[in-house]
Design a binder for these strands. Structure first.
Lengths: 213, 213
DNA sequence: CCGGAAATCCACCGAACGGTTGATGCCGTC
DNA sequence: GACGGCATCAACCGTTCGGTGGATTTCCGG
């Protein structure tokens, strides 16, 4: 009784990575690579057209990102299991993907055998997490973090630029008292006591990023 | 008059990436992939044994990293051109690699054709830089940055933890006046005016890292 | 309707910061 | 010896921050 091959779609903006993944599954008759997508929107279209069992999905892609694509697949009722394969395991990346419906989350340092096993597991509908992501999720259960509001994030970005509360107030057309309220809320949510620690924590959680955008 | 193939060695700790690169050059008779290494030390040994024309080298690898490997290759007089292929374009990554002797520096979003071209260029001994790395180097020529001293880095780390100057002084067994001197030197060197901006700039320059180490 | 979250705002006050203007001592290099 | 960089230290002072203890309005979900 031979099982049908696991049908796979690869979504990653890096050609090197797409080739690498394709190469890993190419010689194995248990898998069939249906196609490749360079961004989330293309992944959704190909998934609708080709009906893969598993989609290997990067998160940070230009144009439509991975989380948006996962949500769109769910909205369209697509049955494919989404296994995230990405470089990043920050809160900012992991949680939205899992909340959007990803069946698994792996990092790109995953070896060949482990990746093959993970794809099989995901095809069965079972969850697969890399150790660092599993650890992070356990940590979140113990110390749930409140998300910063949009306004708080705006204030945080200006803090990181070195703006005083007064300057921030002028930039956002609000009073300095309001800025201070936001600042204190940021401290409470991030569990810190001053601006410098808030900025450091924000970088480590992916709330602030290394690019200037 | 057919030219001999460019002989290539791949050094990257990610199996997916090694496979991807190998796949890119596999069908092209102008290139010959000699082997793969999972870290810098292995790359050096293979380069000595196989004499590649070009080594595609990742920087952040467990065990011996890429910069150390580049230095060791130079020390041993190995003639291979090192083309760095990595995810990171922070100052902390780019400059040491180029100073160590890398012929080129590319990011992993480089497409197939561009990568093939880059390897040919590097084999000829000509420099190859990705646009973002070129931009960054131009920026450094215009505004050369002073490196922080070891003591300044110590102070910066404590600032990022949220320590006051007084607490930092107690931790380092110095006076608060000394801490303030270091703090002001940090601001001058990073071109900022307060702690929060110093921390942000430090993350973006790789002086502070996302892991807690 | 009620409660909670978000955004906005106020006044007061002590602590801490940032800036300034010095200084000394040690070490390595020329 | 002279010089520069680093580490260390001091005093003074105005500005900013962080904390406290409030307040109102709007929106959304139960």
């Amino acid at each position: 009784m031979a099982e049908p091959p696991v049908r796979l779609l690869i979504a990653d903006d890096h050609p090197i990575v797409r080739d690498g993944i394709r190469g890993m599954f190419a010689g194995d008759p248990e898998f069939e690579v249906l196609g490749e997508a360079g961004d989330g929107a293309q992944a959704v279209e190909l998934a609708q057209a080709l009906n893969p069992d598993v989609i290997l999905m990067d998160l940070r892609m230009p144009g439509t990102d991975g989380v948006t694509a996962i949500k769109e697949l769910a909205r369209r009722g697509n049955a494919a299991r989404v296994l995230v394969l990405t470089t990043y395991d920050t809160d900012r990346d992991v949680l939205p993907a899992i909340e959007a419906g990803a069946t698994g989350y792996l990092l790109k340092d995953t070896g060949r055998d482990e990746l093959v096993r993970a794809v099989r597991t995901a095809a069965r509908g079972e969850a697969v997490l890399s150790p660092s992501v599993a650890t992070r999720l356990l940590g979140r259960v113990r110390t749930p973090a409140d998300p910063l509001s949009a306004r708080e994030l705006e204030v945080l970005r200006l803090i990181a630029e070195g703006a005083t509360n007064r300057e921030t107030a002028a930039r956002l057309f609000i009073s300095e008292a309001t800025v201070k309220s936001h600042v204190l809320h940021i401290y409470t949510k991030l569990g810190v006591n001053d601006r410098a620690a808030a900025v450091a924590t924000a970088f480590r959680r992916g709330l602030l990023t290394l690019d200037n955008g």
